[in-house]
Design a protein around this nucleic acid. Structure first.
Ligand code: MN
Ligand code: MN
Ligand code: ZN
Ligand code: ZN
Lengths: 143, 143
DNA sequence: TTGACAAATGCAACTGAGTTGCGTTATTAT
DNA sequence: ATAATAACGCAACTCAGTTGCATTTGTCAA
């Protein structure tokens, strides 16, 4: 399904307006495989002649999060990074040298088993986890 | 081995001085099972009549990190949390309700296998990972 | 024990990410 | 076209962490 259609539907369902900024914001996230920070987003928007205030971006991101269009990721620094949520649950490889970010899918059976064990043994209900890998990407190995 | 001895040795080896603040800082981390933020540390120090400047704490933490006495943890908010490093590699359970933090050890064989796979297939060398679990602690379940 | 020297500390000012209140502008439904 | 209200921009704010510099303190050798 065309993702724009889906987004339009979701926005309507939540009485949110499909503005130029919101559309471009989603486009920017769609065209980037890696999660983006707010500063990243502002730069990319400026490149397509859209000079937007950061407050607007923060508020738009929060709403798009609420209706499940985008998700937040933490990559080890103080910033939040955003990516479209239509991608299934996955994790990231973060290069400590050049800060490049790659998606990584993996089998999490063992992880879920551990979560169940913790839940059973200590009465802690695990709702989600965050797992990120840090190291050196192919390009930075040789340096 | 008495952890104070070990710390003293390490400090000397790096030409660092064993000051009252540094000793108390390590004591505070030693007496708390959960990782602490700088604000947490400042409060705990004030409780034992040590009113310290935050800059001093940040600088001390950085040095103790450099010589491997303490480690940094990220728990999903913008703060950094610090814990003593003599504890072996482990992860955390973070309660989304009350923010309580518990340590959790787990078998990581499967995780290491995945890391090797990624390394082989994509040429990305993984040096470390961060894995934290979010949910509801025993006390917050019933609410 | 003392004094010189380097390390540690405190303070004020700063940065960068994110938030809030409010007045103005744009989208939407009728 | 108009009215209702959501979205936007701006300025001022919070909060974690950093930096430069003057002052204090710990260490070590004389
Ligand atoms: Mn991703
Ligand atoms: Mn821990
Ligand atoms: Zn790289
Ligand atoms: Zn709890």
């Amino acid at each position: 399904m065309e993702y724009r259609e889906e987004i339009l539907t979701l926005l309507k369902a939540h009485h949110l307006r499909l503005t130029k900024i919101r559309r471009s914001l989603v486009d920017v996230l769609f065209q980037n495989e890696a999660p983006l920070s707010v500063q990243d987003i502002l730069c990319k928007l400026r490149k397509i002649q859209l000079t937007v205030n950061k407050t607007t971006v923060y508020r738009a991101l929060e709403q798009l999060q609420n209706i499940g269009i985008i998700g937040v990721v933490r990559l080890g620094d103080r910033k939040q990074y955003y990516e479209l949520a239509f991608r299934e649950h996955h994790h990231h490889l973060i290069c400590l040298q050049c800060e490049r970010v790659e998606d990584v899918d993996m089998n999490e059976d063992r992880l879920f088993a551990e979560e169940k064990k913790v839940s059973d043994e200590r009465g802690f209900t695990i709702l989600r986890h965050s797992l990120e890998f840090f190291g050196l990407c192919r390009r930075c190995q040789s340096i």
